[in-house]
């Protein structure tokens, strides 16, 4: 179980996260939606400590971290219990697909190379890239790169995988294959916290949808409830705009 309490993040004078409380059950799939610039990505980056939050607590299993006073060791431990899928894939440009997935196993988990490579092959096969193990990122399509990114996150065996708009940089033709891999992970009950604008994914896959605005969680609930009967005016207005454009496609 993951528990986030009173998470605050400020950049200079601007408050990006204004006290986020969020509990994620093991195996739960949570989708975070909301207007641009409301702190959705910052929330994920703070949980992974890619940004240092200013205040709050993050608890993952038996690891309980006061973020304002987190030691280097705690930050490292927290990162090792979370995995991240980036909007721009962020694959290691100097490494093959196989090496991208195996890197963490070798360097962080101290696995022998042969064992790590075998595991990486297995994971790449699971995301449908069994024939691309030796390809470098530059020679892969956006969809393929992002699937490698997901395999790399899976390799970490983290308690939760954080997805930061995983399909936003993709050409439309590659979106489905990435969402397909995510749906498969969801069926396996991998705990996921997903920031996305793909409302159909939220509706079909999420256990819970969270609507964020201005650094706060405005409302949350099962997708059926949040999409059909949103309570807050901000949620209604956002959904009207987004659903209108997505249905027009």
């Amino acid at each position: 179980m993951i528990e986030i309490q009173g998470l605050v993040k400020r950049f200079n004078d601007a408050t990006i996260l204004d006290g986020i409380d969020l509990t994620i059950e093991q195996g739960e799939i949570i989708v975070v939606i909301g207007p641009s610039g409301t702190g959705k990505s910052t929330l994920l980056r703070c949980v992974n400590f890619l940004e240092q939050p200013n205040a709050g607590r993050i608890r993952i299993g038996d690891l309980d971290v006061d973020v304002a006073r987190a030691s280097k060791k705690e930050i490292l431990a927290l990162r090792r219990r979370t995995a991240f899928v980036f909007q721009n894939y962020a694959l290691f440009a100097n490494k093959t697909a196989l090496e991208n997935v195996a890197e963490g196993l070798i360097v962080v988990n101290g696995w022998k190379k042969a064992r790590a490579h075998a595991r990486a092959r297995e994971l790449l096969a699971r995301v449908g890239l069994g024939d691309k193990v030796d390809a470098y990122p530059a020679s892969l399509s956006g969809g393929q790169q992002q699937r490698v990114g997901i395999a790399r996150a899976m390799a970490a065996q983290a308690e939760v995988i954080l997805f930061d708009e995983p399909t936003s940089s993709l050409d439309p033709e590659w979106v489905e294959e990435v969402l397909g891999v995510m749906k498969q992970l969801a069926r396996e009950r991998q705990t996921m916290l997903v920031v996305t604008h793909e409302m159909s994914f939220a509706r079909d896959v999420a256990d819970r949808v969270i609507f964020m605005s201005d650094g706060r969680i405005v409302e949350q609930g099962p997708p059926s409830q949040l999409f059909s009967a949103p309570e807050d005016e901000r949620t209604r207005s956002f959904l009207r705009k987004v659903l209108a454009t997505q249905e027009a496609l």
């Binding site: 980036f86 962020a90 290691f92």
Partner: peptide, 12 residues
């Protein structure tokens, strides 16, 4: 993003 990715998988 290369640094972010490396840190995110728990590298020092």
């Amino acid at each position: 993003s290369q640094t972010d990715a490396a840190l995110s998988i728990g590298m020092t």
